[in-house]
């Protein structure tokens, strides 16, 4: 079979897998992004017990393999089936896709929190003072000055985190999620057609390239004010 024929035969399944990969990554990164600003604030100025808990959580998430975390939730939840059923949560944990999303949210949130913490710490204190001096409330200072600035600083690192998460999402195939990697393995196990791995790699590369391009466009817009020459 030629490469073209093989690709056109495999493409529907691979695209289905690609959709799952995008969904997995997108949900994981987006939900993590909802929680990371609040956690970053706690990390910097929250009450001590909350700070300690947060540090433990972050060290655990960053210090253990993502695959181990996936196993922990996917196989671990099976051990507590009775309890989870009683709580009405079993139907959530029964689906490997849900388990994977949960793990990705928890994992990415730890990284995003740390990235954002760095961004927050790099906001020029004078700009925050100017906002306070004009009579803004604390919430206004955060919304109008601190976070807009912190996100501009953190933007490239956050993009990097999303790319890493996207590639790491291939691990979900090991807990039986049919993402792009899962579909690829499925096709290979039936046909022993090695080229399907190249096709999968090309698709991963394609979405990364598109993502990097889009992310950089946004970055250019965000950081335009900071550049001395504002031609672009």
């Amino acid at each position: 079979m030629s490469l073209i024929e093989s690709l056109s035969a495999n493409l529907p399944k691979l695209l289905d897998g690609l959709e799952t990969t995008l969904l997995l990554t997108g949900l994981g990164a987006a939900l993590a992004a909802v929680f990371s600003p609040g956690l970053a604030l706690i990390r910097l100025g929250g009450p001590t017990p909350a700070k300690v808990l947060l540090r433990i959580y972050i060290s655990f998430m960053r210090g253990t393999p993502l695959l181990a975390q996936l196993f922990l939730v996917f196989y671990g939840s099976g051990q507590f089936r009775a309890e989870l059923t009683a709580l009405g949560l079993w139907s959530f944990f029964r689906d490997p896709f849900n388990c994977a999303v949960l793990v990705f949210v928890l994992n990415s949130c730890a990284y995003q929190t740390e990235i954002l913490r760095g961004g927050l710490q790099a906001v020029p204190p004078g700009e925050i003072e100017a906002a306070r001096a004009i009579g803004m409330t604390r919430a206004q200072v955060l919304a109008r000055v601190t976070f807009p600035h912190a996100y501009r600083i953190a933007w490239p690192a956050l993009g990097n985190e999303v790319i890493l998460l996207m590639k790491a999402s291939a691990l979900a195939s090991i807990v039986t999620v049919f993402d792009l990697m899962g579909r690829t393995r499925q096709i290979f196990s039936r046909s022993f057609e090695f080229s399907v791995y190249f096709e999968a790699a090309a698709l991963y590369l394609l979405i990364t390239v598109v993502f990097v391009f889009l992310w950089r466009q946004i970055e250019r817009r965000l950081t335009r004010p900071m550049r001395r020459t504002q031609g672009n």
């Binding site: 004078g126 700009e127 003072e129 306070r132 001096a133 009579g135 000055v145 501009r152």
Partner: peptide
């Protein structure tokens, strides 16, 4: 603070 304006040594304009 709403009744008091402040001008800083380092200007402290919002750069964005």
């Amino acid at each position: 603070r709403r009744h008091l304006g402040m001008v800083f040594q380092q200007f402290n304009l919002w750069t964005h």
